[in-house]
Design a protein around this nucleic acid. Structure first.
Lengths: 203, 203
DNA sequence: AAAAATGTGTCAATGATGCTGACCCATAGT
DNA sequence: ACTATGGGTCAGCATCATTGACACATTTTT
């Protein structure tokens, strides 16, 4: 699994007005410093949690993918194409936020191997509307089931209130673009959306 | 930036006993199906959230790192060495769960360039106790501040209850090994721990 | 109808991260 | 002394993502 991550934090070292000890939250000033300090600690913890949590979340699926000579990029394609059957290549690029070339490297073989089925667009025949074949759906479900356990366990242990909180925070971590993409994903998969949205071709 | 992730889910297609409509939660059987269906949807959403959230969380820091010719692997080293000054190479390998060789590729240059300072262990002189130099701390803080905004915003918008829930769920997503590592990180950084724990040398 | 823009595909080259397998050295422990 | 451990390093390989430049078909604009 690869989840590349990215964490970073100053560490328990330096740069924080600590005033060593005296944390009785008595004076307003102390409370202010305390608050700042807590936030620093909280952020550090958040980074740890995201690193470990995301890594382990993806671990199971990666194992299956590895045996098929695939990687996470393939998984993402399976996931999002499954989520929005009939999605165009451009939309997929927008969601994944990778270059056309990066997508092509994983998508082409998946079409060739019969996991993904492209169909010419009706309104615009230049488009390739992507959807999963039965084979693709089967693999996606297999990957899903593998991750299902971990998420189910986490949700069950944490409880519904925590799950709601989890969602709120994750949503908050996302940038504006991602929130938009997410919102579209949550809608009933309706193709030929209004806003054509600029292709994420950064290459 | 590279955020590799990994998601997977069956998609809105197939394999779920839906019974189309009738979701009044009236009969126990219907409630059961309903629950399953909700869980499926919830899991799909969880995958979306983790993908987008994690990606955007790391985006800011990646930009800074890129200008310095570094990547996320460097960031992780800065983060965890900063979190536990005096950490040994073996402990770091255990936390990152990568091979010695993979770590060496990023760690060696960081030592050479003066971001990380290794010191021979007192009890065991074979060990290299790693800590950040002032230069390393400065960079780590810079990266931290970049991520701080996103996390602070997410926490603020979500509220304390949600933050607690977020933590519970993320913790639940972690495997046993990660939970152990996290627990150790949260302790007052005490070196020379009891349990020597097997080196994560998988190569 | 000609020109410009758009959706996709593709070639070539590069970089970051990770892995496996195999060794080597210095220090510890028995 | 012998073995185990912490750590380093070399060689080679795979995945995923990047940039830059073209090519082709179709749609839209002028």
């Amino acid at each position: 699994m690869m989840l590349t991550h990215s964490l970073a934090m100053p560490g328990p070292h330096a740069l924080m007005p600590d005033t060593t000890g005296s944390d009785q939250t008595s004076s307003p000033a102390a409370a202010g410093r305390n608050l700042l300090f807590l936030r620093e600690e909280e952020l550090r913890l958040a980074q740890d949690l995201l690193f470990f949590g995301y890594r382990d979340f993806t671990a199971g699926a990666d194992a299956i993918l590895g045996e098929l000579g695939m990687g996470r990029a393939h998984h993402r394609v399976l996931h999002f194409v499954g989520r929005r059957p009939g999605i165009t290549v451009g939309e997929l690029l927008g969601i994944l936020a990778i270059t056309k070339q990066s997508l092509a490297r994983v998508l082409s073989p998946m079409v060739t191997q019969g996991y993904v089925l492209p169909a010419p667009g009706r309104a615009d025949r230049r488009q390739r509307l992507l959807s999963l074949t039965t084979k693709g759906e089967t693999l996606e479900r297999q990957l899903f089931e593998r991750q299902r356990e971990a998420v189910m366990r986490a949700y069950r242990e944490a409880g519904p209130v925590a799950v709601d909180g989890f969602r709120r925070v994750m949503r908050g971590l996302m940038g504006a673009a991602a929130r938009t993409e997410l919102a579209r994903l949550e809608l009933p998969s309706r193709r030929a959306d209004s806003r054509p949205q600029p292709t994420a071709e950064r290459g």
